[in-house]
Design a protein around this nucleic acid. Structure first.
Lengths: 205, 205
DNA sequence: TGTACATCAGTGAACGCGCGTTCACTGATGTAC
DNA sequence: TGTACATCAGTGAACGCGCGTTCACTGATGTAC
């Protein structure tokens, strides 16, 4: 096991171990209530070794946001690439799949979005703003929306992003023992987005 | 100062003092990271006296939700009573006024909605569900929506509540030094609700 | 290739501190007669 | 109304514990020659 990997590689692995341990803990409790010792215990290193990787828990928090928003950005990229004949059902199913596959990341994001450390909150809010902006650009290209003001486009994009966020949070709260509840959440999200689309078709028409 | 008030009254005042102290602390940091000693310090009593009022911080958390959701329920009552000729602008202005007047309460609710202690989270989620349910009932009475299924009514009510929640969170994040930002948030919220209303008019029509 | 030294991720003992909780107490308020 | 006793909100000392952080260290990996 030893000898083959370089010192730098081993260090990077330990760093990832710390991030993963913190993410796991942060999926269940607020980041502000997690101690440095807990994280190192979960990562199987001694508390003092923490400082070889981060100056403080705050710094680990920011690294954690980087890690989590990667999942979010991946989802956004998936959704933009996919141009199915039913973009609403397509987006929702991409969302459901991503939330399932990266549930600790989304759990952390949902919890810390308004949760705790200012540095963490700011990093999350920036990523969400980026998401809304990209959706605005996508909407601007759609036939029928080319005459819309940028304010109206942003208003609609914000509404759609908000609905997606509420859906993510609903998905995370669903009890996995009742898979029907998840089906209901998905149905509701699709209907809500369809209703928004209908509203957009009627908007200032 | 002494002698006039009963023992029970004094006890109740101290209890309120604990709740207010915790609310003040909870408006700025996650409830899970606040210690029993901090709360008693802010309420000017000795740590051990805490147990005359609550068995644990968890129990105080639930009392705190009661206190905060009172502000929320008041807002809901205001909004339902008000039957102006423009219910959307009316609801939004009621929402803005309430958020301004009870910002620590709403800050606590926003933070703890996904934040920390399960007991607190559950209490908040119950109140929000109640809110959605009441709005569903209100919608069912509206002309033009009487033929809607209860599933569709709930879907629409949920969308409106979600939009209001996102608006509350945006209002809390606005920097008070730039009042124009608040105006923008209000404008956007009104437009989003109008767009939803348009969507409802076109829904399965 | 072999040797001698430098680097540095991780160790383990130790520290002072704030924490939640226990306990016996105090003294003002409340109650019974 | 006055007295004797009960109640109980708040006190203050004490406890054991996990915390973040310091420090000198170890020993495997890396580097220079």
């Amino acid at each position: 096991v030893t000898g083959i990997v370089s010192r730098a590689e081993r260090k990077e692995r330990t760093r990832q171990g710390l991030i993963e341990a913190a993410l796991k803990l942060g999926a269940e409790r607020s980041f502000a209530s997690i101690s440095l010792r807990e994280v190192t215990r979960a990562a199987s290193i001694v508390p003092t070794a923490f400082y070889r990787h981060f100056d403080s828990m705050d710094e680990l928090g920011v690294a954690l946001v980087d890690e989590c928003t990667r999942a979010l950005r991946q989802m956004i990229r998936d959704a933009r690439r996919d141009s199915a004949d039913d973009p609403i059902a397509g987006s929702v199913s991409i969302l459901v799949r991503n939330v399932r596959e990266h549930s600790p990341d989304f759990r952390f994001l949902a919890r810390e979005r308004f949760g705790g450390v200012p540095a963490v909150r700011r990093a999350i809010s920036n990523t969400l703003r980026l998401f809304t902006h990209e959706l605005t650009v996508d909407l601007a290209r759609m036939p029928g929306l080319q005459t819309w003001s940028s304010e109206d486009l942003e208003m609609a994009a914000d509404l759609m992003v908000g609905t997606m966020l509420e859906t993510i949070q609903a998905l995370l709260e669903v009890d996995p023992r009742y898979p029907d509840d998840e089906v209901q959440v998905i149905r509701r999200a699709e209907h809500q987005l369809r209703l928004i689309a209908l509203g957009m078709a009627a908007w200032r028409a």
